[in-house]
Design a protein around this nucleic acid. Sequence first.
DNA 1: GTCTATACCAGGATAGAC
DNA 2: GTCTATCCTGGTATAGAC
Lengths: 192, 192
Amino acid sequence: MSSDTPATIRTVALGLFSTRGYEQTSLREIAERVGLTKASLYYHYPSKQALLLDLLRPLLDQWGEVAAGAESLPHTPANVRAVLRRCLDVLLRNRAAAGLFVRDTAAVVVAIAPIWEELLQLNERLHGWLAGPRPAIADRIRAVAAMEALGAAISSSAYLPEVTDDELRGTLLDAAGAVLGLDRTGDAGSPP
Amino acid sequence: MSSDTPATIRTVALGLFSTRGYEQTSLREIAERVGLTKASLYYHYPSKQALLLDLLRPLLDQWGEVAAGAESLPHTPANVRAVLRRCLDVLLRNRAAAGLFVRDTAAVVVAIAPIWEELLQLNERLHGWLAGPRPAIADRIRAVAAMEALGAAISSSAYLPEVTDDELRGTLLDAAGAVLGLDRTGDAGSPP
DNA sequence: GTCTATACCAGGATAGAC
DNA sequence: GTCTATCCTGGTATAGAC
């Protein structure tokens, strides 16, 4: 139904938050676009923070599933590539929410500190798995860098607006893999 | 001199901005730490935005030098590696300011839109050079991803606080190079 | 479920005394 | 150069009518 007001609010809010930024978006602005008044929003959401939290929840849950899934797999090149792919898919499926996390970190942190902690811990689990068993420092740095490279799926829209999701998927998967020393097929790269 | 008030203000502001965030830091908070009142700040800086701008200027200038320097070089594997190294050095030398750009993007954009435009254009020049002559779409994506991997120098502090700059330099340089298809020495990688 | 009206608070910014 | 006092704006939140 198009009369699902909370859903409409979420859609509008996500759009505004991810373009203007969280702090820069007023409740009045959201209300106007939805066709409500500022005060009416408080009927559906108890606070601006609660609204933000609802928007980030799906991404966070999916991210948690990827982390949990990874930890049940042995650390083989093919599995590394599979996990990277799942990360990338989650990012692409939740582009707007992910953009909020990366471009508006400071605001998100103070708004929902516990959620931020949760994300940090999920990332640490993913980094830990990606770095492999008994990782050297360099392995741990590479794990962070590989995830960061996947983040290009989000930031690239500012630089390469016309690029398709499939192009991103193929290229970024190889890129992140290369950071971790995989070749383009997912086999182990030749050791140095 | 330790009585260089503007310098003290900059130091305190950069510290607060880069931890709490720009919007989340009030002028009163800065003033208290400096040992002044809010109003006194206005004797030294005409606005909060002007203060932020002063903080970001050095990074922006150095970034511009790297971009200009790159464009005067032929696109060889050794030069690509050299440019990546310069990018990384600038990031490490300006960690706090760079962190402001990446973790507080939304706020920075609205505060100083023209500066943000300048950064986008500098990045585009760097991406363009890194992607090489007559780049395919994949080359352009890889260029963005490589720069993003270097950004791990900033984000890694949240995950790997004990890591040294030299460890970051060595590993991230290889990582970004790998994204662009270089091997670890800076020679051209074998084509697929 | 949605609206009007209103109280409240915080932050940026300015005026003018010292 | 620094202070006190004050203004103005805007977001947050509540009460209560419809």
